Amino acid sequence: MSKSKEYSESGNPIYRYSDRQHEWRSPEYGEEEWIKKIEDHVSQYIGESDSVFHEILSDVVHIDVHVIKPVPERNYYTLFTTGMSFMPMSTPEGAEGFEYAELMICLPPDWPILQEDLENPDHYWPIRWLKMLARFPHDYDTWLGWEHTMPNGDPAEPLSRQTGMSGIILLPPLEVDEDFLTLDMEDGRTVHFYSVVPLYSEEMDFKLKHGSDPLLDKFEEYGVNELVDLKRRNTCEAG
């Protein structure tokens, strides 16, 4: 496996990864106590999961995706991973303490989420991205964290036929209590929780050129948060 690094106009590193080259490895499974702490933490601040998409065949780490149904006070689906934090990520100097993470994505209440619905790639992509992103740092000996972006291919293609957005950014969720963002595992390790937020290509380009803060200012101006809106305004659209 190899990776190359270059820098954007804003001075942030850009990593380009070749195809994974290691052989199939038996997955790491989290201890029941570790998994339960994550589930209890999410349940306390967001709600109890109603179902789980269990991974049947796993490589490196075992990733499950839990589903919390909409309720009146949080009228959208919340999907979150367990498994990404079973192994530490290879964080660089200056990012100590961010080795462990789990991911979430929030979908509209009418999102088709039944098993038969998910045979359609236009419905399944959020789960596919959660699984792919959760495994990515362990496949490539790297890390993912706050404000990291990833395009859907090179060149980037739309995430589905229902949207023009073609990449993602990882951000702390906004529509939660601040105490939800981190989970102290009481053994010196801390799990950080990030939302997967879809991006338009222009927004990815803007972030590369100007950095994260100006993009987040635009998100605040236009009310962009962790709830996926396939038709939301492109905050960096020309004109």
Rank of each mutant, 00 (worst) to 15 (best):
E202K: 01
L215Y: 07
D179M: 14
W143T: 02
V228W: 13
L171M: 13
P173I: 10
Q162I: 07
V196K: 04
E175D: 15
E157V: 09
G188D: 04
D205S: 09
D154K: 12
D184H: 09
D179R: 13
S212I: 05
T235S: 15
S195Y: 07
E186T: 11
T190N: 04
T142H: 06
N234T: 05
D187Y: 07
H148N: 14
L230M: 15
D187S: 03
L170F: 07
F206N: 06
H210G: 04
R233P: 08
N225I: 15
E147C: 14
L208H: 13
T149V: 15
V197I: 15
L183H: 03
L159H: 03
D184Y: 10
T149I: 15
V196H: 04
F219I: 05
T142I: 09
D184Q: 09
L199Y: 02
F206D: 01
R189Y: 10
G153E: 07
G164D: 10
H210P: 05
S212K: 10
I169Q: 00
G167W: 00
L144Y: 02
V196F: 01
L216Q: 12
H148F: 15
V228Q: 11
V176P: 00
L216M: 15
G211N: 09
R189H: 12
D177F: 11
L171P: 00
F180G: 04
M185E: 03
V197M: 09
Y194H: 06
E202I: 08
D229A: 11
R161K: 15
F219Y: 14
L199N: 02
M165Y: 01
G188R: 03
D187F: 08
M165S: 02
Y222T: 09
V196S: 05
V176H: 06
L159I: 06
D217Q: 14
M165T: 03
Y194C: 02
D179T: 10
V196G: 00
R233M: 14
E202H: 05
E186F: 07
N225D: 15
D177L: 11
L171R: 12
V228S: 10
L183T: 04
D217M: 14
E175C: 12
H148W: 14
M150F: 14
S160L: 01
S201P: 01
T142D: 02
E186H: 12
F193I: 03
I168K: 01
L208V: 12
H192P: 00
P173S: 11
V224R: 01
Y194F: 13
E226I: 08
D187N: 06
E220P: 06
Y222P: 06
V228T: 15
